[in-house]
Design a binder for these strands. Structure first.
Lengths: 146, 146
DNA sequence: CGGGTCAGTCCAGAAACTGGACCGACTGGA
DNA sequence: TCCAGTCGGTCCAGTTTCTGGACTGACCCG
């Protein structure tokens, strides 16, 4: 996760990706929609491109003009954005969401995280934290106490 | 989502919450595990407390000692952390995860986001973005350039 | 008595962010 | 033809934030 936050851990990267998902692809649009200063936006777009989350393609030759699109890896951030949006609406003052996601089933999309293996909902306390091959925590022990 | 990122949008807030989920509750542990400078950690913990994601409780009187615990709102960030962890392992060099989540069903926990209404997996393109009551995007939805 | 633990604070230098001005190559309208 | 506007940036100076090491004060353990 630390690696992910190295790329996404700031106030603008996820909003940029979100606007790309919404269908905006141009620099000026992204600047206006996210509120990011243009200098900062330039840097973030470069970093996201380098990380493989977006592509930068030239759509006009002589006045050089570019547009940004999600890669497969970038589109894969959809679950992160959905769950973050859901949390914001539930636990911050952000009750009147500016946008609503409507699933193809017709209902407003409220994401639920399930276990890929057994398909059951995942709740705090229903899993255990174990050390992986990369070497784990100093004294991870119990994981779920409270 | 912007409100959520106002609180969580930096390199340390989510790691702090993650370590709390893993069962670490003391200032020094959090500093060591996240790598956050102590001054910064102090600020983040105050902000998360103010946002209602964690509580700070005194467990020793005379040498004042405190420990931090997740509130219900904080625990509700589990889906965000799970999906972010999953993305990091899939799309960054973070293949050898230091920790593995094992679901109570016995399998390694790979989160899948489903629609709360129809229970189907959510994939890019299987939903529509619409303006909500809060007033929406200038010209959202279609994705075609104007 | 000495060392360690714990939850911080303080400080100075480095890095990042901010917002406004500016740019060059066009395009559209009168 | 002239003028305003668009687009994707860059440049700059001032402000804020981050960083990491040193320090503190009350306790606990041997």
């Amino acid at each position: 996760m630390s690696d992910a936050l190295e790329i996404l851990g700031d106030r603008y990267s996820l909003p940029i990706l979100r606007e790309l998902m919404y269908g905006f692809h141009r620099f000026t649009d992204l600047a206006a929609l996210t509120g990011a200063p243009r200098t900062l936006l330039t840097g973030r777009l470069r970093r996201l491109e380098e990380a493989g989350a977006i592509t930068r393609t030239q759509y006009s030759q002589h006045p050089p003009r570019f547009e940004y699109h999600l890669t497969a890896a970038g589109a894969d951030l959809l679950p992160v954005i959905l769950t973050l949006k859901e949390w914001g609406e539930r636990h911050t003052g952000d009750h009147e969401a500016k946008t609503v996601f409507v699933h193809r089933c017709g209902a407003a999309l409220h994401p639920v995280v399930t276990c890929g293996a057994c398909r059951e909902d995942v709740r705090p306390g229903e899993f255990v934290v174990e050390d992986g091959p990369g070497g784990g925590h100093p004294s991870a022990t119990d994981g779920t106490d409270h």
